[in-house]
């Protein structure tokens, strides 16, 4: 049976309920060593350990979530990603993952540099604050933008650094990071056109020059 040719993987099947996890999981090589920063309940790490046989490590700030991670058999320690990487030797991981947490970090640039010090590659997934609904919301209401993707009040939002896809590109260029992969998501669709305006989430894989 033949079907009409479709662009490669336009629709992303969710992994553990999330499309960014699906993209991240494709980037991680089987048998590699992975550090997940802000690993939550350890769901992605557990999946990677089970299905890609990775050596999995995680950092998580919430004690309850650390407990749930350990309950999954993961070696996770309770700590702050802003400070937590300092102890690791250089280049001891193949991949360091930061999923939807960059915008919550106190010192995001320091975190990115540390990720590329301890890991050969950094995989960063972040929400795009440049999405058109954010721009329109701010323009029309004159208030800190609130949208379906960013439903928080300004004072109770965990997001303290608002970055767009273009901001990340600029930073990568300024820091001499080599972008190996850049992938954009709108809902469960891969997006190629006008990502800074239309993408809700971006997933980057970068390494040092």
């Amino acid at each position: 049976m033949t079907t009409t040719a479709t662009p490669e993987k336009t629709f992303i099947r969710q992994l553990l309920g999330r499309t960014d996890y699906a993209l991240i999981s494709e980037l991680v090589e089987p048998g590699s060593s992975v550090l997940d920063l802000g690993c939550g309940d350890g769901e992605l790490l557990a999946w990677l350990a089970e299905n890609k046989q990775v050596t999995a490590r995680g950092v998580e700030i919430s004690p309850a979530r650390v407990q749930r991670s350990i309950a999954q058999g993961l070696s996770v320690y309770q700590g702050d990603i802003d400070a937590g990487l300092a102890d690791y030797p250089d280049q001891c991981f193949d991949f360091v993952i930061l999923s939807q947490t960059l915008q919550e970090a106190r010192h995001p640039l320091r975190v990115l540099r540390e990720m590329l010090r301890v890991g050969r590659r950094a995989i960063v997934a972040f929400p795009n604050f440049g999405h058109w609904t954010m721009r329109v919301s701010m323009l029309l209401t004159g208030r800190a933008p609130k949208t379906r993707l960013f439903p928080h009040e300004w004072h109770s939002s965990p997001n303290i650094h608002f970055l767009t896809i273009q901001d990340f590109e600029d930073l990568a260029a300024a820091e001499d990071f080599i972008v190996e992969r850049r992938m954009y998501l709108r809902g469960d669709r891969r997006l190629r056109l006008l990502p800074n305006l239309l993408a809700e989430v971006a997933v980057y894989m970068v390494r040092k020059k």
Partner: peptide
């Protein structure tokens, strides 16, 4: 102890319980 183990990239889980 945890930090020293991390310094050698050893397998360590850590939790501070309330």
């Amino acid at each position: 102890i945890v930090r020293a183990l991390r310094g050698y990239n050893r397998d360590v889980a850590y939790c501070e319980l309330d």
